[in-house]
């Protein structure tokens, strides 16, 4: 009997078929995503609600005549305090959503039972983590777009900068933000308690990265910690790009560290995945729920 209908020739044929597998995974996620559009409501509400908490706090603290805002503007150098806040909260929500969406993409399949059938196929296994990231990035782009739209319409926030520079900052941040998501996704397969990690990360980002205030207000040691979180650079660069009309030269000091962190977190994410795959073969974790 014929061993199989494939010849295991490495090279081009192999790469093409792996790309087709990856594409099939992206498509699968996209079909399911668009078929059950319950997220639409969340997509309009969250971008508004979460920053509003901070915006109203800021208004309350600024005094009845709003004079406190001048101090804020002096401190931050931002002439737009609402824009300042929504960049911070949006980055925070981005990382948070990635940890839930990408971070639990494998875990959800594990619980549904489909992770095992995916694992049974000869396709490259990392595709199963990479694939769902595509639709996630698209939906995140929608999320950020809607944020801009809502605050533009309802709060009169006006962009003072180039959309392309904002996109550049976001692209530069993708490897770091999603690399962390990959590492996390692999951890929760073998160590179920790892979900507590989400709260740690978003807590860190919330306090250290200055989502609603300038880092310089933090105590010295906290500023040191902030330097090691990529979100710090993303928030800083995004604010500059969106509201201070910063161009490429001004953004480079944020882009370079973001890319370095990106390389680091992608490597961590991929090695955690390999570690998980090996460990799951010992413990049978892929099939447990």
């Amino acid at each position: 009997m014929q061993a199989s209908l494939f010849n295991t020739s490495p090279g081009k044929a192999r790469i093409t078929s792996e790309l087709r597998s990856l594409w099939a995974i992206v498509r699968r996620e996209w079909i399911i995503f668009t078929r059950y559009p319950s997220w639409i409501i969340a997509l309009f509400i969250w971008p508004l609600i979460f920053p509003m908490m901070y915006i109203f706090t800021a208004r309350a603290l600024s005094g009845p005549d709003g004079s406190g805002l001048d101090v804020f503007i002096q401190n931050t150098g931002a002439n737009e305090f609402i824009g300042y806040i929504i960049v911070g909260t949006t980055v925070w929500m981005w990382q948070n959503i990635v940890l839930w969406d990408v971070g639990f993409s494998l875990r959800n399949e594990q619980m549904r039972g489909t992770l095992e059938s995916n694992w049974l196929s000869p396709a490259w296994r990392f595709s199963h983590l990479l694939g769902p990231t595509g639709p996630q990035i698209v939906s995140m782009g929608m999320f950020i777009g809607i944020t801009a739209l809502e605050f533009g319409l309802l709060f009169g926030v006006r962009l003072n900068g180039s959309v392309w520079m904002i996109v550049l900052m976001m692209l530069a941040a993708i490897p770091a933000i999603y690399g962390l998501g990959f590492a996390f996704a692999s951890l929760v397969i073998t160590i179920k308690e790892a979900s507590a990690f989400v709260y740690l990360v978003r807590g860190l980002v919330m306090i250290f990265c200055g989502i609603t205030f300038p880092i310089s207000l933090l105590p010295e040691w906290m500023q040191e910690v902030a330097k090691w979180l990529p979100q710090t650079y993303l928030i800083h660069g995004m604010r500059a790009a969106a509201f201070s009309n910063a161009g490429l030269p001004e953004l480079i000091p944020d882009v370079i560290p973001l890319l370095l962190f990106g390389a680091f977190w992608l490597a961590v994410g991929y090695s955690t995945f390999l570690w998980m795959e090996r460990r799951a073969r010992q413990t049978g974790a892929i099939g447990q729920y």
Binding site: F6, W23, I25, R28, I31, R112, T114, P122, A123
Partner: peptide
């Protein structure tokens, strides 16, 4: 439990065909 309930039967088979590298 080994197939996707939110896809159709045909979509399931097409999806897995790609995973099994069927041209």
């Amino acid at each position: 439990r080994s197939i996707y309930w939110k896809l159709t039967g045909r979509e399931n088979l097409e999806y897995f065909a790609a995973l099994y590298h069927i041209p």
